[in-house]
Deep mutational scan, measured.
Amino acid sequence: ATVGSICDLNLKIPEINSSDMSAHVTSPSGRVTEAEIVPMGKNSHCVRFVPQEMGVHTVSVKYRGQHVTGSPFQFTVG
């Protein structure tokens, strides 16, 4: 992922509605921003955001307030 470019995290989660999901990204400096959740068809969801700084980011994806399997996810920008 690169700073200022759209970053997509694709998840396969069976039998949940994306409208019941939420996602937030925490940057290396601790800034928390909301991420967009895009339905991608049956059981597939895309978490979309634009990182604003380099370094390790943490993406928390929740369904009805509970982390989904594997969340929070970490990835490096830059």
Rank of each mutant, 00 (worst) to 15 (best):
H57Y: 08
F75K: 15
M21T: 03
V68G: 02
S44N: 14
S44D: 14
P39H: 12
Q74V: 14
H67D: 10
M21V: 14
H45I: 15
A23Q: 04
K12R: 08
G41W: 03
C7R: 00
Y63L: 11
P14C: 03
V56A: 12
Q52V: 09
C46H: 06
P14T: 03
N17Q: 09
P39G: 13
E34K: 12
G65W: 07
T2M: 06
E34F: 06
G55A: 07
E34T: 11
K12H: 07
V3G: 04
A1L: 01
E15Q: 06
V56C: 08
M54D: 15
R31P: 14
T26R: 08
V61L: 05
T69G: 12
R64H: 14
F49L: 04
C46G: 09
H57L: 13
G65A: 10
T58H: 11
I6Q: 05
K42M: 05
E15W: 05
V3Y: 07
F75L: 15
T33A: 11
S71W: 01
S18T: 06
H67K: 08
V56I: 11
S5D: 10
E34H: 08
Y63C: 14
I16R: 04
S60H: 09
M40E: 15
R48I: 00
A23V: 03
T26G: 10
V59S: 03
S60Q: 08
H24T: 11
V32A: 10
T58R: 13
T76R: 10
T69F: 04
G4R: 01
I6L: 05
F73W: 13
N43A: 12
R64P: 04
C7P: 00
Q74M: 15
E15M: 08
Q52F: 11
H24C: 11
N17V: 05
K12W: 08
E34Q: 12
P51L: 01
Q52S: 12
T76D: 15
F75T: 15
K62R: 11
R48M: 00
F73K: 04
P14D: 03
I37V: 08
T26Q: 08
V50T: 08
I16T: 08
V50H: 03
M40A: 14
H24S: 13
G4F: 06
G65M: 09
I13M: 02
S5N: 10
T76S: 12
I13R: 00
P72D: 01
G4M: 03
E53V: 13
R64Q: 14
R48K: 08
M40N: 14
H24W: 11
G41A: 08
V38R: 15
G41I: 05
T26E: 11
R64E: 15
S60G: 11
G41Y: 05
V61S: 01
G78R: 04
S29P: 04
R48E: 01
K62Y: 09
E15I: 13
G78Q: 09
Q66Y: 05
H57T: 14
M54A: 15
E15T: 07
G65L: 11
V56P: 10
H67G: 14
Q74K: 14
S71P: 02
A23M: 01
T26I: 12
V77R: 01
V47E: 01
S44K: 13
Y63P: 04
K42G: 08
E15S: 09
R31N: 10
N43E: 14
K12C: 09
S18P: 06
G65T: 11
R64N: 15
F49Q: 03
Q66N: 12
K62C: 08
V56Y: 09
K42L: 06
Q52L: 13
Q52Y: 08
G4Q: 01
Q66R: 11
S27T: 06
V59D: 00
S27P: 15
G55K: 02
F73V: 03
R48D: 01
P14A: 06
H67R: 07
T69R: 06
H24F: 11
H57F: 14
H67T: 07
H57I: 08
T58K: 14
N17R: 10
S60F: 07
V32D: 10
Y63D: 13
M40D: 15
T26P: 01
T26D: 11
A23T: 05
K12T: 11
G78A: 05
V61F: 00
L11V: 13
A23W: 00
V47G: 01
N43S: 12
C46E: 04
P39W: 02
A35P: 11
V61W: 00
G55S: 07
Q74E: 06
P51Q: 03
T2E: 08
Q66P: 05
Q66S: 11
Q66A: 14
S5R: 07
G41M: 06
T58E: 13
T26A: 10
F75G: 07
T69A: 13
V77Q: 01
S71V: 03
I13L: 09
S5H: 07
M40C: 08
F49V: 07
G4K: 03
V59T: 02
S71D: 06
S5Q: 13
M40K: 15
T2N: 02
T69I: 02
F73S: 02
A1N: 15
F75I: 15
V32R: 11
T26V: 07
S5L: 03
V77Y: 01
V61Y: 00
T76H: 08
T58F: 13
C46D: 15
P39K: 10
V68C: 04
V32E: 11
P39V: 07
F75P: 15
F73I: 03
R31Q: 12
Q74H: 09
E53Q: 09
Q66G: 13
K42W: 01
T33P: 11
V47K: 00
Q52N: 14
S60N: 07
H45L: 09
V38G: 08
V59L: 02
G78W: 01
V61H: 05
C7A: 06
G78C: 04
F73N: 01
S71R: 03
T76C: 08
N43R: 04
N17K: 12
A1G: 15
V77I: 11
H45A: 10
M40G: 15
F49E: 01
G4H: 03
E53H: 07
H45Q: 15
P14I: 06
V59P: 01
H67N: 10
A1Q: 04
G55L: 01
S18H: 06
V59G: 00
V3D: 02
T58Y: 14
F49P: 02
G41K: 14
S19P: 05
K62H: 11
F49W: 14
I13F: 01
T76W: 03
I37T: 07
S71M: 04
V32L: 09
V50M: 07
H67V: 05
T69V: 04
H45D: 04
Q74W: 08
S18V: 04
T2D: 00
V59H: 00
K12Y: 11
T26S: 09
Y63G: 15
P14R: 04
H24M: 13
F73C: 01
I16S: 07
D20Y: 07
V68A: 05
M54H: 15
V25E: 04
